[in-house]
Structure formats: structure tokens, C-alpha cells
Design a protein around this nucleic acid. Structure first.
Length: 204
DNA sequence: TCCGAGATTGGCT
DNA sequence: GCCAATCTCGGAT
């Protein structure tokens, strides 16, 4: 059962928290990639200097104007792409960065996408390293901005978020976002969420 | 084995 | 010039 528009059109912070434990699913026909979302960050529309759209939208960020459930992907550091899901209703700006997932299905293909070699000589560390960071899981799934920017994750027949039971609040850690030191007053907002003790989170 | 520093890379803030 | 990241390598543990 996929998550519908109503889920994503809510407040960004609620969407970020409730995405924990849900499965991100990418169906390529011959292979299905599935990963449990274990770490997210909220970028909000309340004077959040860390948000790309805090001064208004540009060509890069225009999809944030769409209703919740659309996909926002951007380039970072010249070499990587990060995956976000737009939240809030149309014209209200907010997005959730997916920072890490735990592989559930398609792990052999993820391994090949990341390392360009077969699944044979694997070790525990290389498995954890598949998807324990925001650019890592994008590479593991083989997602690109060109293919998925602006796609509606509630309607598209390739990509969706699969419903799973809520994570209990005692198992959710709430902390500061990563690498937003430039964001002045916004840098200490507690807008990063992750599942307690999950091995795939990007940082403690 | 673990941790920190340095290199990498190109579009936009 | 800056940046919501990652990889590699060297020295420390």
C-alpha cells in the first residue's frame, strides 16, 4: 500500500518523522529496490536559513511549489545528488531530505551499482556502506536528477513509498541537522530524525 | 580497526 | 567562492 497525497501534504516536520520506517520502493521491472527509511531531515518554511528555498524559489527549487509528494533532487559538491520529497500543500514550501535507508530488497544490484563489482567478496562494512548516507543510497538505487526531478511519488509507476507501521516515539532520535553550520540561527534547529540504534544511520 | 585531514567536483546559496 | 558528501590514505589505537 503506497502513501498517498494526504500523507505528504501535512506539516514538514510530521512528514519527516513519519517517513521513518516506511519503505522507499523503486521498481525497475527486472529488479526491485526497496529500502527502509531510517534517517530524515526537515527543511521548513519558517525562516529556515538552511533551506535552499528560504529566499524564494529558483529554477533549481521550483518543484517545492508543487503539492507534497513530488520529488526534489539537487546536485551537491559537484559529484553527488541528494533526494528529497516535497511536503506541505501546493505553494507552501517544505521538503524532507532522505539521509539513509536500510536495504530490504535488491541488495545485490545495489552492491553492483555502488562498487561496480559482483556481490561475492562482500563484508559487513561494505554492506553497511551501501546506503548509510544521503548520496550513497541515491547511487545504490541508481536514481538520477534527470530521471526523477519533479516526479510525483504518489502516482508514478516506478517509485513509491510503501506504508509500514509507525515507529514508536521512544525509538526516534531527534537532533541537529548535518553540515548546516553556515545557516546561522537555523543551524541548531532539531530537525533531523533517525531510528534509534539502526546500523544504517549516517552519523550518531 | 578507527579517526581526521585532504582531495574530489561543478552548479548556484 | 561556497556547499544538506564521499572516498582514500596515513597515523593512532
Amino acid at each position: 500500500m503506497r502513501l498517498e497525497r494526504e500523507f505528504f501534504e501535512r506539516n514538514t516536520i510530521l512528514v519527516a518523522r513519519d517517513l521513518l520506517g516506511k519503505n522507499l520502493v523503486l521498481d525497475r521491472g527486472d529488479v526491485v529496490y526497496k529500502g527502509k527509511i531510517v534517517e530524515t531531515e526537515a527543511y521548513i518554511n519558517n525562516n529556515d536559513k538552511a533551506a535552499h528555498f528560504h529566499k524564494g524559489l529558483t529554477e533549481r527549487t521550483k518543484v517545492v511549489n508543487d503539492p507534497g509528494g513530488h520529488i526534489y533532487i539537487y546536485n551537491i559538491y559537484g559529484m553527488y545528488q541528494l533526494f528529497n520529497i516535497v511536503s506541505e500543500k501546493s505553494t507552501v514550501h517544505g521538503a524532507v531530505l532522505i539521509r539513509a535507508v536500510q536495504p530490504i530488497e535488491g541488495i545485490e544490484q545495489m552492491f553492483f551499482n555502488r562498487y561496480k563489482r559482483d556481490y561475492d567478496n562482500k563484508d559487513k562494512k561494505s554492506i553497511l556502506n551501501l546506503t548509510n548516507g544521503p548520496a550513497k543510497f541515491v547511487m545504490a538505487f541508481g536514481i538520477s536528477k534527470e530521471e526523477f526531478y519533479g516526479v510525483d511519488i504518489t502516482k508514478d509507476n516506478r517509485i513509491s513509498v510503501e506504508y509500514q507501521e509507525e515507529i514508536q516515539s521512544k525509538d526516534i532520535i531527534k537532533t541537529k541537522r548535518i553540515n548546516v553550520d553556515y545557516a546561522e540561527h537555523s543551524k541548531d534547529y532539531l530537525l533531523r530524525y533517525y531510528i534509534k540504534d539502526n546500523p544504517y544511520i549516517s552519523r550518531k
